[in-house]
Design a protein around this nucleic acid. Structure first.
Lengths: 353, 353
DNA sequence: CTGAAAGCGCTAACAT
DNA sequence: ATGTTAGCGCTTTCAG
């Protein structure tokens, strides 16, 4: 790696002049510019961004913390964020916590040590008091994505209207005649699942119904959790007639277990998902889903951060993006009347009290 | 952010002593250690890794370039790499090219400017001469993942036996009586697709068959490409009886189009995929797939890089991980005899010459 | 317009 | 065992 000194020597100028030429400073003579550029080209000089960052006080690097990049939703988010930030001249330092809130916290500290200029995060657990403290120690702008951290209002946020989506979804199920609706949810220590449960409860009580606590299964989304959760629901004495799934990895497990049991969606059971992923859209039958533009979320988050980086004392903003119910066959036409258990074909001895 | 000077002043010692205590230097008195640690705790000091990196000559940061993080395979790869590297004390600078070889090249340069200690990459196009040049300029260790860059032997590589997987898959189809086998492939400028086509050709010619050039459709994997490719194949005067899909985003498009046409897998058409993703395993009927342990690939790549970082003049190594055919219903029992066109239910007027 | 000098925060070499 | 000094590569004063 050639340094600025070598370029300067090779061009017969001072290092500062190289900086000026490369930084498009106003007052540089054409002669100097030409000589410097020639030398730069000759030795293939590229400024060392670490050294420049140290001197300038900023690194043109942004930290991104997500709780699970295997989740296609979060992968899409990271993709959009990275694209937008790269276009604005920022590098992305990625930290992935695999659902572990402890790791999220460590990452906040480690990224701070790496002198990031800003931070975008969608952590596993937004309720941890030490997270609030860690964020308050941050001196750079922060953007929260689909998270609400109580007691920390310094950050901008980009949220999705999960409550609205859950309401449309629930109303749709109620309209289809369902009264026993269950939710296989992600952890309620994060905004999306919390909001969805709120939405479901609102619509149910608005229709004189209520959400049975046995019908709410909440845990970090994994395929295994999905399998076990749907099994538990179907094995209840009075199983639900409709199930909402709030997490993509869990959905995969749910579909596997349903198929193993020979449960046919849209006939034996109504199923809806809160994430419109290919596995849902191309399932047979196609699965009703709540859609949102995840890339748009990422672009907004990145744009918000870039704006804050540009204008130091910009006020934090919260933006809420819409969700949209996409009705497909999985939730239509299920016999949802009393006594109609959503039991699998292999459930010959159903105990009904 | 407190600096080392403030800690030193607060503890009444020299900055160098702070470094020594924090770096667990051998010769430090207990008294000094205690005073320094107290001061560190008091002001909440964390070393600035950028400054330390500049001084030390390394940054404990590794660059990771992938062609498409939306591809679940690559997301899983990044996940495993990030986890392994973080455990070894490295941060990950992520660059995502969205399938654009030009972006890959820029990323190599940009990461170099950010003084990464090492580079792991799975680029879109491994055949570009300027990529070879860019890599040759790298002075840090490089690990290639599922890529072979001709004329560049400095890197370690972690490869999968895609050729072997394709051979098993093709032999399976031939055993099922198929003679007209098509491939919807990713770009052949990357190792996996190239190897798979090689494998298919080898098995076909070993069985006295050959791969019809009209049956090979190769392009960057997108849902749209998948849809159009399968449509083109089915609309051929003599359509294939079996189709292999070599890319996950394309697979989604293929499945969508097949369903639109009412083509039933395992009856009208045999389908196999080279990536065993949930959308394949949970499709009805389940789709035969070539499986590999992508996380293992990522872990190996990271471990390889860490080893090279530890031992400066370690020889580059190439490791090849196995693939495994998982036969499911989508490729079994299709009538594959002469004249049996894999036409959709809506194809009433089939031209057969 | 350009050069010289100082310093970002840290650590390693050299002193003592 | 600890303090002092120098310098990583760059950019930004401050002179001229």
């Amino acid at each position: 790696m050639a340094t600025i000194k070598e370029v300067a020597r090779s061009a017969g100028v001072a290092p500062a002049s190289v900086t000026r030429v490369l930084g498009n400073h106003p007052n540089v003579s054409d002669a100097l510019r030409a000589r410097v550029l020639a030398a730069v080209a000759e030795v293939g000089y590229k400024p060392d961004l670490v050294a420049a960052g140290l001197r300038r006080g900023y690194t043109s690097t942004v930290g991104v913390i997500v709780s699970d990049i295997l989740n296609p939703m979060l992968a899409e988010l990271v993709d959009a964020i990275e694209e937008q930030l790269q276009a604005s001249g920022y590098g992305v330092l990625l930290a992935n916590s695999h659902g572990d809130p402890e790791r999220d916290l460590e990452s906040v500290g480690l990224l701070r040590q790496r002198r990031i200029d800003g931070l975008i995060l969608s952590v596993a657990d937004e309720t941890r008091p030490d997270l609030v403290r860690a964020l308050q120690h941050m001196t750079v702008p922060v953007v929260l994505v689909d998270r609400e951290v109580q007691g920390y209002n310094e950050a901008s946020s980009v949220l999705c209207d999960h409550r609205g989506g859950a309401k449309s979804m629930t109303q749709h199920l109620v309209d289809e005649g369902h009264q026993r609706i269950a939710m296989i949810s992600g952890p309620t220590v994060a905004y999306p699942s919390r909001e969805r449960l709120l939405g479901i409860r609102q619509v149910l009580s608005g229709n004189g119904l209520e959400l049975d606590e046995d019908y709410v299964l909440s845990e970090r989304g994994t395929e295994r959790f999905g399998r076990e959760a749907i099994a538990r629901l179907l094995d209840l004495r009075i199983p639900p007639t409709a199930v909402a799934v709030g997490n993509t990895p869990a959905l995969v497990g749910v579909l596997g277990e349903l198929r193993r049991r020979g449960v046919v969606l849209g006939r034996d059971l109504a199923l809806v998902t809160c994430n419109d992923v290919p596995v849902a859209a191309f399932h047979s039958p196609a699965i009703t889903a709540v859609w949102r533009d995840v890339s748009e979320v990422g672009r907004h988050a990145a744009a918000q951060l870039v704006a804050m980086l540009g204008d130091g004392k910009r006020q934090p903003r919260t933006i809420v993006l819409p969700t949209q119910l996409r009705v497909r066959s999985s939730s239509v036409g299920v016999r949802s009347g009393e006594g109609q258990a959503a039991s699998g074909a292999d459930l010959t001895a159903t105990h009904v009290t």
